[in-house]
Design a protein around this nucleic acid. Sequence first.
DNA 1: TATGAATGAGTTTTCATTCAT
DNA 2: CATGAATGAAAACTCATTCAT
Lengths: 200, 200, 200, 200
Amino acid sequence: MDNKREQILAATEKLIATKGLHALSMQLLAKEAGVAAGTIYRYFKDKDDLILQLRNAALAFFADAMLEGFDQGSNEQKFKRIWFNLVNIEKLCKTDTMTFEQYFNLPGVDSAEQMAHEREVFADLIAFFEQGVAQGKFHQLRTELLFAIAFEPAISLAWKIRRRNFEFSQQELEQTCDICWRALQVNPETVSNQLESSTK
Amino acid sequence: MDNKREQILAATEKLIATKGLHALSMQLLAKEAGVAAGTIYRYFKDKDDLILQLRNAALAFFADAMLEGFDQGSNEQKFKRIWFNLVNIEKLCKTDTMTFEQYFNLPGVDSAEQMAHEREVFADLIAFFEQGVAQGKFHQLRTELLFAIAFEPAISLAWKIRRRNFEFSQQELEQTCDICWRALQVNPETVSNQLESSTK
Amino acid sequence: MDNKREQILAATEKLIATKGLHALSMQLLAKEAGVAAGTIYRYFKDKDDLILQLRNAALAFFADAMLEGFDQGSNEQKFKRIWFNLVNIEKLCKTDTMTFEQYFNLPGVDSAEQMAHEREVFADLIAFFEQGVAQGKFHQLRTELLFAIAFEPAISLAWKIRRRNFEFSQQELEQTCDICWRALQVNPETVSNQLESSTK
Amino acid sequence: MDNKREQILAATEKLIATKGLHALSMQLLAKEAGVAAGTIYRYFKDKDDLILQLRNAALAFFADAMLEGFDQGSNEQKFKRIWFNLVNIEKLCKTDTMTFEQYFNLPGVDSAEQMAHEREVFADLIAFFEQGVAQGKFHQLRTELLFAIAFEPAISLAWKIRRRNFEFSQQELEQTCDICWRALQVNPETVSNQLESSTK
DNA sequence: TATGAATGAGTTTTCATTCAT
DNA sequence: CATGAATGAAAACTCATTCAT
């Protein structure tokens, strides 16, 4: 059965999520996964390989969670879906799932392969930005810059919610999301402004 | 002399910046700082204490670097100064200074004391946002949300520049900064739009 | 079939010969022998037992190789045949057969049983020496001493050829062999001296 | 003090001598040497380095023991001195000193550096053989071959005495030594023959 | 006060052996 | 009989911390 491998990966993620990467010892991991220490080495060459494979598993998980529902609705709906997915990934799976931040601090995320892999996984999202630019709707900027403007606020809020126990109301988040969405556009429609006035 | 303490802190930062926190051993640190291993324990209770104190030192450094020039000019100039400070902290001190990211991954950054300390250090910046909100210039949102919209894009770009070797032109960065500045405001002046049209 | 046992023994010898005893792991052995790890334990009680049995197999192999051709010719021919067999065992089967040296370093070679076994296997050779002594041809010495004088030089040369990559010409070896042969005898015939003079 | 290093080397030699190289574990060694496991690593980079250094220490010890008294007396006396030194090295230091055999089975003895080192250490002995050949006293053979004829019997007897608990009388050994000495020479003087006749 | 040798518990990894299939 | 996944004790090595000098 291949579920020992899954058990080990799940336990690894849980330990990194709860205690941090520095506290990931193979003995502890074995105990957490409910296997013997030696067993880990049947499925993973060594600790580095385990982390490499976790990186890919985590990336797949994040991409899934982030892009969930991305195929339906208007551009604005798509955008806001992703934005809230980002905030909620962290809010929902509080304790035993890795965070984006933890993913990006895994050794090796900056390797060329991993970055290529990321681009592949997020191909649809990249296309979304490129199309918006081509249609003259979004600012004439590289995808990385647009992504930063659009989604980094959401990612950092998720981090604050989780690591620093902040809490935000749905309305606060919706308004923030709307600001990001409009920041992206060259000529934002004035409709959404209603949201702002209603909060006053 | 108290400069042994400084030597040790400086060496700690350098080692974390260049080799990473996981590679920070007390023997290596002693060698880098030019003191004996035992000496470290005269100035710091233990490794945790050393890191705690480094956290404060690093926070002071970041605050300085980030808020540099914050006392002069119009609100827009202040904003843009900070925004570029954030991007450049990382760009300039490439090798032996810690990054934001490394600071935020230090164990203990999420403690109540540390967060209180952060609020204190960034009091001026918080006041800047609160004043903007009070004057009806910025969106009616909590400081954390405004900060996320305004500066997280800059922080994440700095990270990409450093860790992933991205390069952005001054013009790209200025345009992005301008978008963030205008996103913050309820009724952005149309003046800055010239920047956008000039790139077309 | 009993050839699983043979496969395992052959693989064991090959691994010891090529990688050394210290690198002999049961998993590697299983792979090399083309059987499952557990299977080894059907034929051998444990690793020690496997090595014990290999010792006997190797001893039989060495005795065969060393005594090959020992039943024909004059005493001098017999002697020289063995002497060259000793040198050549190592020279010929360079890679996947164990060496004398490896055999003698197997744990347990010094046990009483093993030594009794060796005496049995080399009974003919022992008889050869005893007969020579009885006939007054060889020096009046115990077999062990005569063996040392006669054959240890050959064994050590074989070792140097193999482990230290020495090379000796056929002529050099023949002259050395002749010296050993004559050293054994009380009154060596002067005939073989021609060899020496011919090299001058 | 440098005597920790000596303690560790001595304990290493003792363990290899008594239990064999395969049983040399760093924990056991630490206990035997009366130091903590970590201490070993202050003096030796790793296990390989420890063994490398032991190799050199052992070589020095062997050379000393073997060449002791080599500077006095006639050629014959020199020869016999060495021959008996070889037999006795092992006889005297029964349990906790390494044997030649163990020395030669240490990993790395076959490296070019180690062999060069050996040649240097045994320079006087090599000169002894070369001079004998030049003077027409010894057979016209390379030093390695003469050494094999002359001393390998002694080395192997020492091994048998130690590992297999053989015992030889002084007279047996003297006669064997004499045979080796005469085997080396082109025209051995007949004087020493008296020894042989006296045993009859 | 400063040193750095010494400590020993902790780390990652290997491997002889077992046992359910 | 044969398999090979699983085991866990033991291996080599690291490192935060102490303490005699």
